[in-house]
Write a protein that binds this DNA or RNA. Sequence first.
DNA 1: GTGAAAGCGCTAACAG
DNA 2: CTGTTAGCGCTTTCAC
Lengths: 336, 336
Amino acid sequence: MKIDTIRDIAERAGVSVTTVSRVLNNRPDVSRATQEKVRRVMKESHFVGNANARGLKRADQEMVAVIVRGRQNPFLSALAEEMLQCAAPGKAPFALEYIDEQADEFHHALMLTHSRRASGLIFLGSRIDDRCHAIDGVNLPMVFATVTTQGTPMARASSVSMDDRAMACQAIEALLQRGHEKIAVFGGDRQGTDSLALRALGVEDAFHHRGMQLEEGRYVETRFTLSDAYEAALSFFRRCPDTDAAFCMSDTVALGVIRALVDLGRRVPQDVSVLGIDGIEMGRYSLPRLSTVAQPIGKIARESVAVLTEMMESGAHARHVTVPASLVLRESVREA
Amino acid sequence: MKIDTIRDIAERAGVSVTTVSRVLNNRPDVSRATQEKVRRVMKESHFVGNANARGLKRADQEMVAVIVRGRQNPFLSALAEEMLQCAAPGKAPFALEYIDEQADEFHHALMLTHSRRASGLIFLGSRIDDRCHAIDGVNLPMVFATVTTQGTPMARASSVSMDDRAMACQAIEALLQRGHEKIAVFGGDRQGTDSLALRALGVEDAFHHRGMQLEEGRYVETRFTLSDAYEAALSFFRRCPDTDAAFCMSDTVALGVIRALVDLGRRVPQDVSVLGIDGIEMGRYSLPRLSTVAQPIGKIARESVAVLTEMMESGAHARHVTVPASLVLRESVREA
DNA sequence: GTGAAAGCGCTAACAG
DNA sequence: CTGTTAGCGCTTTCAC
């Protein structure tokens, strides 16, 4: 199939390519008559410009890449969707890039930076760990959403997140307050300095405030998928049946844990309370409805974009903004 | 930040751009020595080629665009993920494109075709309706996954889907067989000729086989989101409390319906059985576990790619393949 | 084996 | 207002 270029359109409309280009870019300096003629021809020919050529030429043009780690994560998907809403008409357009959960987002970022000449980067769902040095070469405005980079080797990058430590602390306190003492925590790797590690610290804080501490063996490491959480919970609760509450570092994990509990004949929340983090939509429709630390998706999206814009437009330094989160107690945690 | 081009690399390695390009493309005609030198320089400089320039030059190169309608649909996400696994190394690379649920995927397809010179198209989750004429201009190998285009104006495009009509019929029969008679159907618009319409037909089939028919008023139209399904179910069951089973045209809808039923004080499946379609992962962990018509995601992905490849490589005609689906009865439907 | 040079389709000075 | 022209970074003949 032969595809039209602006040259074809120009010819057919009896004008120069420049004029067509101008019309294409809504430049003001084209007479109404010409403009209409060109537009008509374009419509008739179903013309759509070649993005590659355009991108090549305007390699300097602003464009921000949003890198989402994990296609199957409902929280991140929702956040990404929200992020897209923030793309302002006059500003740099957003390009959403989903990458594999196992993939190296920093390597990917590098690729994008160079290969598509992104001029700004937003990371959703990134972990901050050793690999992050891979990105040292990238000297672009970057913001990490949902994790803080404060006090990490990545501090050059901005970040927008809730106060993971405080919220985890608050979550555990809520559980403690409701009489739960044998609390299990379902999280990820505690190494590193990202939100998972901070949440683990927050958990400790809560226990310390009461002169207690998280019993060793009640911290369960799991990948953040339904199946892994389910399996992990099954084997954990068989081993520690006296556990009476579970704090999960993601709603998905919490949902898997609930299913496991029910399969073990435990009732939620009568026998065991379950509390998640994120505030995904499913949590409002699950049985029981999931109690959770709800992250303010809209606010995170808006702030991330705002901070990035600042950095891109006025070369502002990295900032670390903390957004307010809220503990939402629904049915999966028993009443006080 | 100044970004290296192959020219910079060439200079630094003391060779010509041509040579660098050759190395970049793994051409055989470069001496080992030169090759290694160039590679070393590229590594040191963290070089990554400019995709735009490459794409522009090789506008002819194969590339298939996978258009997924809806970022928040777990079934489609899983299918997309599976699709990506099918991208063979030597073949055309895949570009995943998520578009808004409300967006016009046909218009989008057109854009992609032209703007990124896609040479093949796969649609996930498309509806086949009047708008489809928009795509008449596109004369590219296309395959629709999860809907059949057989007997539609889109028949020029291939399709890979389960036998929606037969499966819906089978689903209803299973319900009938378990003694349910007051069955409600939660679906979408019955107009059109896509899977939703076929499923509606299948439902009728099942009733007709028994000399019955779906009572008017028990077909509930809803958008395929948790919240819409929930609201729709709430108001429907208040109106028709004698209904004892719900067949939902998506698992997400089924999950919303279950929640609504429970909120109305009905037990699932003791009072009302609920049956979905798709076979999303959540259905294996929900309470109760969701009975569903499970679509064979892997097979749909593989077949779609196979059919597309056929069309692209040997100009084969459109084919309509039917993949086997299976009724998975779990906890949300009561025993016979 | 390697390099020089001609564009891919588009945009952006710079002239008219 | 409109057209001419020079590339953007890369691939690809075609010579050497």
